[in-house]
């Protein structure tokens, strides 16, 4: 598929906050089968459109590897965007945000766009972290903030697409060096600007939620 840019994302946050569920919800709700036996589950990717430009989002998910904390941090490098996720029903996952953020800032390129996500907004009754607290944290650290529900898919599209918009703006402003792949951005192969109207969310199936 043709795209103008490819953005690499990474999803980070404590175990069990719903990182893979967000990814699953945003991509086509299934992990791509890979037929070569030596290959595992493919990472999520999806085409979206920002200002009529087709943009491929390729998302790295380190879910499951969190315990190997000495290695997962090296994945930050080469990402243009990060979704930093906590679980609004678990205070400890919110308390760990500072560590995650520091990690991300130290290990990634300084222009990486970080979006703070309070996930599981469908579990209002079990809420332990107020929305205002998430907003305050985001303001203090210069992040974009959003509450999502990977279960009902509420705000999931927006989270991924708004991050892409920010990255796109940074490219327009010349902040990102798009010729250096280490920034997590790639220019599309033989991209033609005429081919542009890719709908933002057309391939959603109706499977039941995973979390």
């Amino acid at each position: 598929m043709s795209y103008a840019y490819l953005f690499k994302y990474i999803i980070i946050g404590d175990t069990g906050v719903g990182k893979s569920c967000l990814l699953l919800q945003f991509t086509d709700k299934r992990f791509q089968p890979v037929h070569d036996l030596t290959i595992g589950v493919e990472f999520g990717a999806r085409l979206v459109s920002i200002e009529t430009k087709p943009i491929k989002l390729q998302i790295w998910d380190t879910a499951g590897q969190e315990a190997f904390r000495s290695i997962t941090r090296s994945y930050y490098r080469g990402a243009a965007g990060a979704l930093l996720v906590y679980d609004i029903t678990r205070r400890d996952t919110f308390n760990h945000l500072t560590t995650w953020l520091e990690d991300a800032r130290q290990h990634s390129n300084s222009n990486m766009v970080i979006m703070l996500i309070g996930n599981k907004s469908d579990l209002e009754a079990k809420r332990e972290v107020k929305k205002e607290e998430g907003e305050a944290f985001a303001r203090e650290h210069g992040l974009v903030f959003m509450e999502t529900s990977a279960k009902t898919s509420d705000n999931v599209e927006e989270a991924f697409i708004n991050t892409a918009k920010e990255i796109y703006e940074k490219i327009q402003e010349g902040v990102f060096d798009i010729n250096n792949e280490a920034n997590g951005i790639k220019i599309g192969p033989q991209h033609s600007t005429g081919n542009s109207s890719i709908p933002g969310g057309n391939n959603r199936s109706n499977g039941n939620g995973c979390c």
Binding site: S20, A67, F68, C210
Partner: peptide, 25 residues
């Protein structure tokens, strides 16, 4: 890894990641 014969110590992180995806998906 596929080209390797035992003895071998694989990286378990990837086993856990694959299992996580299968579990969630």
């Amino acid at each position: 890894l596929a080209d390797t014969n035992p003895p071998c110590i694989p990286y378990i992180g990837l086993v856990l990641q694959d299992l996580t995806f299968v579990h969630i998906g």
